[in-house]
């Protein structure tokens, strides 16, 4: 469980590395040396900075970022619940601990437009199967009586990475 904390700013060198990694690691035999060449760092410096970022949890994982649709996960359900504020921490931890839930966030409501404050994503291969899984999960956890909805995606228009970091010379 992680709060959405504020972090101290990273050094410019780290931000330059982050920006150079927007499209991923170079696919070469010495990728960290090649990355370093782009930002004016030695391979050793790149290795030590990236290890430190991983150690600090700023890199949350490192490897293949998979498009779930192409990996066979065609049914992508956003399960949303309206949980009383005083229960949301407990319910969030419970839902987040479920094997089927890949992501569980508390978000602000949009009063009058959108009552839900807890989001859980469930990915599966088949919409009917995912719906049944979600219904079973909510019933088993005693959450089925809370106002909730399941929003399946019907089309993906874009799925890329965020544009973080700051290349040297970028404002």
């Amino acid at each position: 469980m992680t709060a959405v904390d504020r972090f101290p700013p990273l050094p410019d060198a780290d931000m330059a590395l982050v920006a150079a990694l927007r499209d991923g690691l170079p696919l070469s035999h010495r990728p960290y040396a090649d990355l370093g060449a782009r930002v004016g760092m030695s391979e050793a410096e790149v290795l030590s900075r990236l290890s430190a970022l991983a150690e600090a949890g700023i890199i949350r994982r490192f490897g293949a970022i998979v498009r779930h649709h192409e990996a066979g996960y065609r049914a992508n359900a956003m399960v949303v619940l309206d949980v009383p504020d005083e229960r949301v921490a407990e319910v969030g931890r419970t839902l987040g601990g479920e094997k089927a839930v890949t992501l569980c966030y508390r978000r602000v409501r949009a009063p009058g437009r959108w009552p839900y404050n807890l989001y859980a994503m469930v990915h599966g291969r088949d919409r009917a199967v995912v719906t049944a899984e979600v219904r079973e999960m909510l019933a088993r956890l005693g959450l089925a009586r809370l106002p909730h909805d399941i929003l399946f995606s019907t089309h993906r228009y874009k799925q890329t990475g965020g544009r973080y970091g700051r290349a040297r010379g970028e404002a």
Partner: peptide
């Protein structure tokens, strides 16, 4: 990557930590 199965290969950052 070319087939679009991966969006990329590399680190996934915690956005808040990058400001």
């Amino acid at each position: 990557r070319a087939r679009g199965v991966l969006t990329r290969f590399g680190p996934l950052f915690k956005p808040e930590a990058l400001g």
